[in-house]
């Protein structure tokens, strides 16, 4: 028993962590055992990132770490020192996923909304890598994102529709450029 207590004295010393969160330089003091999701939610009050299982099985806590989607429950905040982190709040404010959000809204591709930030972050990454994924590829990309409410189809529809719209816009842009 006492061994744990003495460990706590040493190990609970907080560490100053600096990172760029949603485009802003941010510093906070964390205990090494604080996960990134807990740090974002409590210290930085970015509660749009959710904790659903704390073991990487539900996808509710996805954030972008240096541009890639990762589970914020599967790393400690100290590990993110020096990294760039983008959460649902930042992606919303920058407008980069505005079309995805609008399509999710139009098709009611969310109910309780708890899985939604993670879904959007994964969808955003998918469409950044693959311009026009098949429905199968969309479902595959979402295979680690649990939604208990929707049954997934509207989410797949929304992502497919945005992919089509972006592709059409890109084609138009290319046409415009060549003419």
């Amino acid at each position: 028993m006492s061994s744990i207590m003495s460990d706590l004295d040493e190990a609970d010393a907080t560490v100053r962590v600096r990172f760029v969160v949603n485009g802003r330089k941010t510093a906070c003091d964390v205990a090494p055992r604080d996960t990134l999701v807990d740090c974002l939610r409590t210290q930085l009050e970015l509660t749009g990132t959710h904790a659903g299982c704390e073991m990487g099985a539900c996808g509710a806590c996805l954030v972008q770490l240096d541009g890639r989607a990762v589970h914020a429950c599967l790393m400690f905040a100290v590990q993110a020192d020096g990294a760039r982190i983008d959460t649902i709040e930042g992606l919303s404010e920058s407008g980069v996923i505005a079309d995805l959000q609008a399509e999710f809204h139009r098709r009611n591709a969310l109910q309780c909304g708890f899985c939604t930030p993670g879904m959007l972050i994964n969808a955003h990454e998918l469409l950044s890598n693959v311009a026009r994924p098949s429905r199968e590829a969309i479902r595959d990309a979402l295979s680690g994102n649990f939604c208990r409410c929707t049954g997934y189809e509207a989410i797949v529809d929304a992502i497919a529709a945005v992919a089509e719209a972006r592709a059409a816009k890109a084609a138009q842009g290319a046409e415009g450029a060549s003419s």
Binding site: G59, R68, H71, G144
Partner: peptide, 9 residues
């Protein structure tokens, strides 16, 4: 191997 976000890390 798991899911895309796990594979990223």
């Amino acid at each position: 191997v798991a899911h895309p976000a796990i594979r990223n890390r």
